[in-house]
Nucleic acid binder design. Structure first.
Length: 726
DNA sequence: GAGTTTGAAACT
DNA sequence: CAGTTTCAAACTC
């Protein structure tokens, strides 16, 4: 399987990536049995296993209240209370078992929760397990563990739901999951938000979930096609990445564990699914009509009977499930955005033309191995290969699925990356059959197939990423790390939900207030610190742009656009929200743009309207000021021109004279004229028979007068020059 | 130029 | 949708 980077994920087609996710705050109670002797209930057995009464009649340890989720490892299944009852979440509770007991037994006793028969409540611990995992839930039973960890600040519980049919028949689960190489399950949330509230596995959900109006961001279900061996302990982790928009979470898990898993928790979770390495992505939804559909896609392998496959985690769909609705009820263009597809890499598979899918994006569908529920889609111009997963129910109703052929060719494996630690990277694919038609009736109230509903599809990048780092925070989404056989090391699975996600979010935080970025420009000579808005960080920049557009499709459009009919030609696209400035200061974007506030503005005390006297006064003042500025500018320009002209004409040597300006007037002509004056005065003295002393005095007095005239002329010229220059 | 005010955007 | 936080620009002194 090809490795795909988070950056590449961000480039997924808009029709795929642009999803509307809704979050559901309701957290339901969970209860899970750990040991089951009966095989996994299959669709054909539904009638036998769907008996909520059995759940209610399960043995309940006295130490556990009715509101405690249990996961036991003994023959007694769990205990649960009335299903579908909300619980109060105590996020500080550490849910940790102390041995072979229940997954969440005594530690959950203090919780004021009511448990459903098919759910597991995952509570974050108070203390971070390490710096990377701020929250963690550890549940150990019979040498197996379930660890739920969040990397962010989320401290809310996660609910894993088991299909009631399975919860009610733990025995069946047990018998089918007898090989217990898998020792640990970890759920790690990478997102930093607290919206991660529940995780719902939906093994049967597919066939029973109501198609939703929204899409699922990512759903990744992978299966290791090769049979598991008697390797050492295997740890599986779930990684939940939180999207920027807080609207969904994505969960995934993978494991190299053997097909069969013995034990309590794991069995309960994955009675079928964990036989295959799988990844899932789950998103909570708020809207009741939006559901999550979990789909598994897989290639059948000799040692992985299809019947063992239910949806990943066989966790029942207890909360609203996110589904992808086909475009039958929407326009084709819009329908494309509603598609959720499982992404895999299987280029060699023949292609099928896609009918109703947006032709500009989804060009072909490639039937995937072993299951008609899985189709691979090639998107023109996209680096990705997408796999559309559909339930058998919906698939049969869809011309897309009907056209797909059953191909037993296994899906190509993800690249394996061997780390320093004996952890490998893989993205196995689980058989698609595991997900079909297993929905228990008990969850039908939440997830019911609605006739005539569009086909549900899921889109997910199922590829791993190239860089695998021990630091989980730096693990790129999509990475699946599985421990090497016999090593006992933990494996990790990071759901590639990136388009959504935290890295983008962080980047967005860096540049969201940057005007350059807001204008769609690269930063240049601005004062940004740690600037990512440049070519060196183009990938991050694109992700941030994508994230911004996800939040607000109008983010990069001009704020000042054309108004409606009858309104001003220009108006603010969103309207201002001023409260104190009266919209008469540049704080107001409308005023700053020199436009009046419009009906869409939500400003308080607005004075920026046509008849506003304040605005008129301000406009007049502004106009007057502007006129003054213009006049001053014009005057300066004129004076400068005059000075230049004057100096050129009257002071040819001014450039060399500088401060000695008067002396510059002692030109040859002036000197000759002065001498003539002096000679004339001498001749006058001779004619009048003046004495020599008197003659000298008369000549000196004349020279003095000549000098005074020169000085006066020079001083006058200098004064004019200064006046001009100023 | 420092400090304050203001409102957009993001976030909860 | 409302309240809060963060930020940068506008503004004041």
């Amino acid at each position: 399987m090809e490795v795909v980077s988070a950056e590449v994920n961000s480039l997924l087609p808009e029709e795929i990536m642009d999803t509307t996710l809704v979050e559901d705050d309701s957290i339901e109670v969970v209860a899970v049995t750990s040991q089951h002797a009966e095989p996994i209930p299959m669709e054909t057995e539904r009638g036998e296993i769907e008996d909520p009464v059995q759940i209610q009649n399960s043995q309940v340890p006295s130490s556990v209240t009715d509101h405690v989720a249990m996961l036991t490892n003994n023959a007694t299944p769990l205990i649960l209370s009335e299903p579908n009852i909300k619980m109060e979440v105590n996020t500080d509770i550490v849910s940790k078992t102390t041995g072979k007991g229940s997954l969440m037994s005594s530690t959950t006793a203090g919780m004021n929760v009511t448990l459903a028969a098919n759910q597991i409540l995952l509570k974050p611990i108070t203390e971070p397990s390490d710096q990377k995992f701020n929250q963690a839930i550890k549940c150990e039973a019979a040498g197996q563990q379930l660890v739920v960890t969040t990397l962010g600040k989320s401290r809310q519980s996660i609910v894993l739901s088991l299909p009631p049919n399975q919860a009610s028949h733990p025995q069946q689960v047990l018998s089918q999951t007898q090989v217990a190489d898998l020792k640990q399950i970890k759920v790690v949330t990478l997102g930093g938000r607290s919206e991660i509230k529940s995780i719902v596995g939906a093994s049967n959900a597919l066939g029973s979930v109501q198609p939703a109006q929204s899409q699922m961001k990512t759903v990744q279900i992978a299966k290791k096609s090769t049979p598991t061996s008697a390797a050492g302990p295997v740890i599986t982790k779930f990684f939940f990445t939180k999207p920027v928009n807080n609207k969904n979470i994505i969960a995934g898990h993978s494991t190299t564990a053997p097909s069969l898993i013995a034990g309590s928790l794991y069995e309960t979770f994955s009675n079928c699914v964990f036989q295959q390495t799988a990844k899932i992505a789950i998103s909570p939804l708020k809207s009741p009509n939006k559901h999550l559909t979990l789909v598994s896609m897989a290639s059948q392998t000799p040692n992985s009977p299809q019947k063992s496959l239910t949806v990943p985690l066989t966790m029942a769909l207890r909360q609203q499930l996110l589904t992808v609705q086909q475009a039958t009820t929407t326009s084709p263009a819009k329908a494309a955005s509603n598609h959720a597809t499982v992404q895999t890499m299987k280029p060699a598979v023949p292609n099928l033309a896609v009918g109703t899918v947006n032709a500009t994006q989804f060009k072909t569908i490639i039937p995937l191995a072993t299951s008609p529920n899985v189709q691979q889609i090639q998107v023109t111009g996209s680096k990705f290969h997408y796999v559309r997963l559909v339930t058998a129910t919906t698939a049969s109703a869809s011309p897309h699925i009907a056209s797909s052929s059953i191909n037993t060719q296994p899906i190509s494996q993800a690249k394996s990356v061997v780390l320093n630690t004996p952890v490998r990277m893989s993205v196995p694919i689980a058989p698609a059959q595991s997900i079909k038609n297993v929905a228990p009736k008990s969850i039908s109230s939440i997830a019911q197939i609605t006739p005539n509903q569009p086909q549900q599809r899921l889109i997910m990048p199922a590829t791993a990423l190239p860089q695998i780092q021990p630091n989980l925070t730096s693990l790129p989404p999509g990475t699946v790390l599985t421990p090497a056989p016999g090593t006992g090391s933990m494996g990790y699975a990071v759901v590639p939900a990136q388009y959504v996600t935290q890295a983008t979010s962080n980047l967005s935080l860096l540049i969201r207030y940057c005007d350059c970025f807001a204008n769609g420009e690269f930063c240049n000579n601005c004062n940004c610190t740690n600037c990512f808005n440049n070519l060196e960080h183009e990938a991050e920049r694109l992700k941030a742009i994508k994230a911004c557009l996800d939040r607000n499709p109008e983010a990069f459009k001009p704020k000042i656009g054309k108004g409606k009919e009858g309104e001003s030609d220009r108006r603010h696209s969103k309207g201002c929200n001023c409260k104190r400035s009266g919209c008469l200061k540049n704080y107001c974007e409308c005023y700053e743009a020199k436009i009046m506030c419009s009906s869409i503005c939500k400003c308080i005390g607005c004075k920026n309207f046509e008849e506003s006297p304040e605005r008129k006064t301000l406009m007049h003042l502004a106009d007057a000021a502007e006129v003054r500025v213009q006049q001053q500018t014009a005057a300066k320009t004129k004076l400068s021109s005059q000075i230049s002209d004057l100096l050129t004409r009257t002071m040819p040597t001014a450039t060399s004279g500088g401060g000695k300006l008067p002396f510059t007037f002692v030109t040859k002509e002036v000197t000759e004229a002065t001498c003539e004056c002096l000679l004339a005065k001498a001749e006058e003295a001779e004619k009048t028979n003046k004495s020599k002393a008197v003659t000298e005095r008369m000549i000196l007095e004349e020279f003095g007068r000549c000098l005074m005239r020169i000085i006066n002329s020079a001083g006058k010229a200098k004064g004019d020059s200064c006046a001009l220059s100023c």
